[in-house]
């Protein structure tokens, strides 16, 4: 049974695209057939983060409009056969998407893949609503920072009222992915703690992704961080999150990078 998952947040820049790419890559590494779909029409970036920007010929809008077949628009990842990308259009705006077209595409993707990961645009407008509409599960990406938490609260409200599940009277499953977390700063009282965010948003925790330089390094290279640096702290956090998505019980911890002098020397040597 395939699962449609939306990665959403309300606020921009909190790590939706980074997280979509890494969750997708980690699911694919676990042997699942995965497609990551960029819903950010006009401001696509998932192709860039996945390193497939030069391979985009057809996009989601072309498929919605019937200008291309789905199979023509799907870009298979060169590093993992299980992983595919459906890019957004860069030249159109968000009004080019419509519910009927999106519904058809999602239905077709459900037949081909085990997991359909929808990367939502920021905001609460049409693009974000269409990205979440067909979801079975929502991953709410939040930074431990006031504006991000406030916007996540708003998005949680929309997930509970503006999705197909909500309209059918079913309960929308939502999980929190706390990103850019700095445990040392939280311990010093400089940053909201995991418990603070959980208490305020009151949805279950999928994972805690620590702030790390590896994330920028991965996007520079055009690879999900779980592929470019599989052993670094954020990659381990994403791998654990993916095991939880698949129903495993994994103890919740905040992965840390080794910061000893020797480890630093090693990092310096290999990078």
């Amino acid at each position: 049974m395939s699962k449609v998952l939306v990665v959403t947040s309300g606020k921009g820049g909190v790590g939706k695209t980074t997280s979509t790419a890494s969750l997708g890559a980690a699911l694919a590494a676990a042997g699942q057939k995965v497609v990551v779909v960029d819903f950010d029409v006009g401001l696509r970036n998932l192709d860039l983060v996945m390193g497939a920007e030069r391979r985009v010929v057809y996009d989601l809008i072309n498929v919605v409009n019937g200008d291309a077949k789905l199979a023509q628009a799907l870009i298979r990842d060169k590093r993992n056969d299980n992983l595919s990308l459906l890019a957004a259009s860069q030249t159109r705006d968000k009004d080019a998407l419509n519910l009927e077209g999106v519904t058809k595409v999602i239905e077709q993707l459900r037949e081909k893949f085990d997991w359909v990961l929808c990367d939502s645009p920021a905001g609460i407008e049409k693009g974000a609503l269409l990205a979440m509409y067909h979801a079975d599960l929502a991953v709410v990406v939040t930074n431990p920072e006031v504006s991000s938490v406030r916007d996540s609260d708003r998005i949680i409200g929309m997930l509970d009222s503006k999705t197909a599940k909500a309209e059918r009277g079913e309960k929308m499953e939502k999980v929190l992915l706390l990103t850019r977390y700095d445990q040392a700063r939280a311990a010093r009282g400089e940053m909201l703690k995991v418990e603070d965010v959980l208490e305020i948003l009151s949805i279950p925790l999928l994972g805690i992704v620590p702030e790390s330089q590896e994330v920028l390094r991965a996007s520079n290279l055009g690879a999900p961080v779980v592929m470019s640096s599989p052993n670094c702290a954020p990659s381990r956090a994403y791998a654990d999150a993916v095991r939880r998505l698949q129903g495993e019980t994994v103890p919740m911890n905040i992965p840390v990078d080794r910061t000893g002098l020797f480890a630093k020397f090693l990092n310096w040597r290999v990078s």
Partner: peptide, 8 residues
């Protein structure tokens, strides 16, 4: 330094 409780 303890600004997190204020944020919360």
């Amino acid at each position: 330094r303890n600004t997190a409780p204020v944020a919360r």
